[in-house]
Amino acid sequence: MHMSFWWDYKLTDYLFRGLSSHSIAGLVGMCLSVASMSFAFEFLRYLQAKQRQKELILRSEQLKTICPTETSTLLDGTQAPPGVTITPMHRTFLFVSEIGLWFSLQNLGYILMLSVMLYNGWLFISAVVGGGLGYFVFGQMFMKINLQNCQIIRDTWCMQKCGEPENLPGSKDGESTPALEAVPGTSTTVLNCHEVAASVHAECHPQN
């Protein structure tokens, strides 16, 4: 096995036994495949951020109805409408989409890693060029979505008035918000403010 970069066009057993290149045209095809996978990796990262934004928006609407803003409560003098629930269909769709994107990213990342570990210089350059092109196309949108996600968290969570423990029944010592019960007439449970905040806090503070 080569432990330093080599530049030959002959490539034997690329990832799978029998998948080999013995011509320049074959190597070009493999390089295009690696570049495409590297480009697709950046695209999947962008899709994953978009998927997280959909969940944040859904939870944002839920939290706004559970915890109305102090300004709207004082001006209107009305009670907040019933909380927006996350139905089982929404949960299933979000879960399947999240798992599917995670699975695709993980496997594609491992394939790219194994391709680069062959130490073929042409494959390495293809991976770098494909990833760079993908970042050029999707990088700005990816960062913009992440900033929007943080804005959703700040506007939804930090600006909400979730009630005071001495005024709301069911609160425990040391908690600013009591746990919310299931909404009558629905089969789903509305998350309390702490649970929603904990789930969306990781968007701006990833544990890497």
Rank of each mutant, 00 (worst) to 15 (best):
D173W: 11
Q140Y: 12
T177M: 15
S36V: 10
L105S: 04
M141Y: 08
F5Q: 12
L168G: 00
H205A: 12
P178A: 15
T189W: 03
I145T: 13
L133W: 06
N208V: 11
Y46D: 08
W7H: 14
G100L: 01
V84I: 14
F103T: 06
R17W: 03
S4G: 08
W7R: 15
F95K: 10
P88M: 03
N167G: 01
L15N: 00
I153Q: 07
Q207P: 00
P206N: 08
G83F: 07
N208W: 14
P88T: 05
Q51R: 13
Q160H: 07
M30C: 04
G77K: 10
H2I: 02
V28C: 07
L15E: 00
A25M: 08
M159D: 05
C193D: 09
E175M: 14
E175L: 15
N167V: 01
M89T: 10
L47R: 13
V116K: 06
V200G: 09
L58K: 09
E175Y: 14
G77H: 07
T65A: 05
Y110E: 11
S38Q: 03
Y110N: 10
V84W: 13
C162G: 10
I152K: 08
Q62K: 02
S60C: 06
L15F: 06
S20V: 02
K50H: 04
